[in-house]
Simulated assay, not measured.
Amino acid sequence: MLDPPPGLTTFRRLLADRIREERTRRDLSQEQLAHAAGLAPRTIGAIESGRASTSTDSLYAIAHALQVSVARLVQDAAEPRPG
């Protein structure tokens, strides 16, 4: 099996943080986001905790439910915020 590309774990963690930030900014619970995205609450929990990666379909559904673009979530995750 191939080793994951450098930075993949960091990217996954930052993406998880961005999803959580957007969710909490909108005062949504994990359950509410899961319902809006058509996903199981445990899936949102696993993604936000960094225990699971997300498929492109799930990422799109999450972004749509949060009313942000996938690009915003991914770009933010690729470019860590200072501080």
Score class of each variant (00 low, 15 high):
residue 33 L to F: 01
residue 70 V to M: 12
residue 38 G to E: 03
residue 70 V to K: 09
residue 78 A to M: 12
residue 33 L to I: 03
residue 7 G to V: 05
residue 83 G to Y: 02
residue 25 R to Q: 05
residue 16 A to N: 07
residue 42 R to F: 01
residue 35 H to C: 05
residue 35 H to E: 15
residue 34 A to S: 01
residue 51 R to C: 08
residue 65 A to S: 08
residue 73 L to P: 13
residue 56 T to M: 13
residue 7 G to E: 13
residue 74 V to M: 06
residue 18 R to I: 06
residue 68 V to Y: 10
residue 15 L to F: 07
residue 54 T to D: 00
residue 10 T to R: 13
residue 20 R to N: 08
residue 15 L to E: 10
residue 61 A to W: 09
residue 8 L to C: 07
residue 82 P to F: 01
residue 19 I to Y: 08
residue 26 R to T: 10
residue 77 A to C: 07
residue 83 G to T: 10
residue 64 H to S: 14
residue 78 A to D: 06
residue 55 S to G: 10
residue 70 V to D: 04
residue 65 A to N: 05
residue 12 R to W: 03
residue 11 F to L: 15
residue 14 L to S: 10
residue 45 G to N: 06
residue 71 A to N: 12
residue 29 S to G: 01
residue 30 Q to M: 08
residue 21 E to F: 07
residue 26 R to P: 00
residue 10 T to W: 08
residue 35 H to N: 12
residue 70 V to P: 01
residue 66 L to N: 03
residue 33 L to H: 02
residue 31 E to K: 06
residue 39 L to I: 05
residue 50 G to K: 08
residue 76 D to S: 12
residue 59 L to S: 06
residue 34 A to M: 06
residue 56 T to K: 00
residue 48 E to W: 04
residue 42 R to H: 03
residue 6 P to C: 10
residue 61 A to L: 13
residue 70 V to E: 11
residue 51 R to D: 15
residue 61 A to K: 04
residue 16 A to V: 09
residue 34 A to L: 04
residue 19 I to M: 07
residue 19 I to L: 09
residue 57 D to T: 11
residue 52 A to C: 06
residue 2 L to S: 14
residue 13 R to A: 14
residue 43 T to I: 01
residue 78 A to Y: 00
residue 42 R to G: 00
residue 82 P to C: 01
residue 39 L to A: 15
residue 18 R to Y: 06
residue 23 R to G: 09
residue 27 D to W: 02
residue 74 V to Q: 07
residue 48 E to T: 01
residue 41 P to M: 01
residue 83 G to D: 12
residue 53 S to Q: 11
residue 31 E to S: 04
residue 74 V to G: 08
residue 7 G to H: 05
residue 45 G to H: 02
residue 29 S to T: 14
residue 53 S to T: 14
residue 77 A to T: 13
residue 80 P to G: 03
residue 36 A to F: 11
residue 10 T to V: 12
